[in-house]
Amino acid sequence: MATANSTETGQGLRLIAPPLLYAILMLAVPLLTILAYSFFKDGYLTIVREFTLENYRATWADPIFRTILARSLMVAAMVTAVTVLMAFPVAYFLSFVVAPQRKALWIFLITIPFWTSYLVRVFLWKVILGFNGVINSGLKTIGLIDEPLKFLLYNTGSIVMTLSHSYAPFAILPIYVALEKIDRSLLEAGRDLGESRLMTFWRVTLPLAMPGVVAAVLIVFIPTIGDYVTPTVIGGGKIPMVANLIQAQMLDIDNKPLGSAIAISAMAVVAVLSLLFLFLNRRFLRVRA
């Protein structure tokens, strides 16, 4: 038994070695390197390899960093709430209303916009919301307004809307998968025991769908925090988020240790919040669907 097991381990590890090696070289080593850099000193064109906590002190003492991090967290939280709330009925429709043989087609239709030119899509929201944009010129043409509405673009609201649009399928798919796993006889049981349709949803469907909702929240929240394009294009550079700060330190200012400390700090905050969120939802995750 032990030999069989070790050969299986050996065979498995031999087979997975190439992608594993690639992930170690291109992901694990780089991540550990920026972790190390965040403790080094910046010597203008070189990196001074002396241990220091100065980068972290500078990062957290900087009010700009704290403002931008708070803004990024708030934007990501709003995007997550909007995206998941808007996605849930769609996932529910896909799972409970659409006929099984048509499900693949619906999912395909929902995922298509997600895979098509991210930059152009984000820019088009600027075209839709802008000063001379589709909404303003449309409203002017039909005579509803005389002056273009200025509150549509270059604010947090428009960033939230654009990001919600970008990450929609990310939220729909995990919720859909969780809903698909629900044993339909449980819902019938709830109804047979005299629960109303709404109460059955609240006490049976929703708790069983929670693993999908939790996955959707994390899968939207984490990449949104690090989005670079939307704050740049839709925020007009006036509403930077963490990614803009990292980019500026790494490329424009070229202080790699400080940039690394900012990146690691932001990642640590996101990791802590994600773990906290998982912990708060632990009773739903223990449920075996």
């Binding site: 590890l13 997975i16 992608p19 594993l20 992930a23 170690i24 291109m26 992901l27 694990a28 080593v29 780089p30 991540l31 390197t33 920026i34 850099y37 994390l218 899968i219 984490i222 990449p223 925090i225 690090g226 989005d227 670079y228 990614a243 990292i246 980019q247 790494m250 790699k256 940039g259 690394s260 990146a263 990642m267």
Partner: peptide
Amino acid sequence: PVMGLIMLPLVLPEIIVAVSLLVV
């Protein structure tokens, strides 16, 4: 853990991947 590492880029913000690769 091995599959976790291989699948990690799926949830990691791309800017982190980009910055860390650049540095290395």
